[in-house]
Amino acid sequence: MKPDDDDKALSQAYAALEQPLPPPALDSAILAAARNAVQDGAKVIPFPARPRRNWGVPLGLAATVMLALGISLQLRDSEETRLDEPMLAAEMSAPVAVPEAPAAPSADAAVGSKDEKKLESASTAAAAPPPAQEEPVTTSVPATRRSLAQPRQAPPAEMRPAMEPGLMESAEHAAPAALAAPAPAPEPEPAREAESVAGDAMARQDKRSPPILAPAAPAPQAMPAPAPAAAKPAAGRSQEHTAPALRKMLESMPPPTTKPDATPERWITSIRQLLEVGKENEARRQARLLQQRWPDHPLPRELRYLLEDAAQP
């Protein structure tokens, strides 16, 4: 191909076009890399820094921050749970006077309007702020957790049928108020007053219904609170003439949980064995205990004379 005027003109036109040049930063980077390579004697040189989008570092930082945040939140939650568990356990095992409050209103509701005023003061006393030594436990537990721990204050299942309908109803109404109340502290004076009121109510109740005694319901192991609550009314009846006998009976009765074979049938069997060996007095005593312990369980007809004879004197 021989050069001609047209080819020359095309070359001139191309030369007249705008010739792009590398940016100065790129020039500097390449020249710096070339100088460094000569000075360092390195064959492989690192890529010179150029202005380019590098999202690796910001994304890595963001991911690290999010990961650390998530882990810290998880750790904090688990730490709170770990801290709350001993508090809850301490609250559940603490022999606080909380059960006294529901016990007193439930008994008081059946007594009448005269005792209602006393009970109001008693419940107010029960709702009073706890003393300083118990404050950390009672105040640090959230209200929801406290309400979760409260159902143990409900009366035992064996006691419910023995209650009168009115008593049951009033107890049902009184229970939420008592549940909403904060865990009361062993206040000396108001608590004693409430105990006396409850004791009176129990004494009146004894005249109308079979005796409801503390050992009637086998208290769960993890909820020891109801036991003192039920024992209090018995102690409150110390002024009554039946109190010493009852206390003696209570002391003589083995705890239900310690004798797993203390069922009515076994008890009746033992009474029969006592009669066979001629220990009639002991058999009468056991029959009375059996009647008190299992009021709903009928005594066999041939053994009922033990109770009748005991009731006659």
Binding site: P20, P23, L26, A29, I30, A33, K43, I45, F47
Partner: peptide
């Protein structure tokens, strides 16, 4: 363009 240009000159250096 910039990348290829830079890679070319760095290849010359190396």
């Amino acid at each position: 363009v910039d990348d290829v240009f830079q890679e070319t000159w760095l290849a010359v250096v190396n």
